[in-house]
């Protein structure tokens, strides 16, 4: 027991030191200002992180979407083997009922904003999707399972998801048809700083936003259906 405690103390100190050192000694950026200018010129995206993962590294991002889709199917597949809860008891609290709707609206508006300006400021499709999914989750805590089914049309959601995945794949192949490389931008770059700029980056942001929103919502729905609300 004493040895175990000693081991815990030593490993804590090591982890603590490593964390602090890595947090205080962040390597300074080696990318020159010209490099930033080049990225912005080429993509017209002010957020260079988005420019990287939706333009230069779009191939990796597509696989991230595949992994996400696979994990959702995994959750749905395994939860379907669990019998669903017969007596579904939602939260029945007036304060919660009111604020959940409020939170839902706020999170959907915030999510759309984050998705649309992903190429101008911090944000993007993934975060926006999760924010919207969380909003849907909060509002569904106060509703009955049949009400949720009626309002969010869960059967349609899985078809939307497949449709979005298909359109993402088609959008990456489409440039080949018009004589460009695959995964290459085919839309006009527009004026820097506008929402409708940066070529296909906002389009992908929007598609990823919808995909992640429906995906995270499916996970929530199946959890509530098969395990019940807390």
């Amino acid at each position: 027991m004493r040895f175990k405690n000693l081991l815990i103390v030593i490993s804590t100190i090591i982890v603590c030191l490593v964390t602090i050192v890595s947090l205080t000694d962040i390597p300074t950026f080696k990318i020159s200002f010209e490099e930033f200018e080049r990225i912005i010129e080429e993509t017209n995206s002010l957020n260079t992180v988005t420019a990287y993962y939706l333009n230069y590294r779009l191939y990796d991002t597509i696989f991230e979407i595949f992994v996400f889709t696979l994990s959702i199917y995994g959750v749905v597949f395994f939860l379907n083997s669990v019998p669903s809860i017969e007596k579904h008891v939602p939260f029945n609290d007036p304060v919660m009922n009111f604020y959940s709707k409020f939170a839902f609206i706020i999170s959907i508006v915030a999510a759309i904003y984050i998705a649309l300006v992903g190429h101008l400021s911090p944000g993007g499709g993934f975060v926006a999707g999760i924010v919207a999914g969380t909003g849907m989750m909060i509002v569904s805590l106060t509703k009955n399972i049949d009400e949720i089914k009626d309002q969010f049309k869960i059967e349609n959601i899985s078809s939307y998801e497949k449709l979005i995945l298909l359109s993402v794949i088609l959008l990456t192949i489409f440039p080949v048809l018009i004589g460009k490389r695959s995964f290459q931008n085919f839309l006009p770059l527009g004026k820097t700083g506008r929402i409708l700029s940066a070529g296909f980056i906002p389009l992908f942001d929007l598609l990823i936003f919808l995909k992640v929103m429906f995906g995270s919502w499916s996970i929530t729905f199946y959890f509530i259906k098969h395990r019940g609300v807390v």
């Binding site: 988005t50 984050i114 911090p122 993007g124 999760i130 924010v131």
Partner: peptide, 10 residues
Amino acid sequence: PDVAMAEASI
């Protein structure tokens, strides 16, 4: 900030 947003929501 991008990662921070994702971490906070997820």
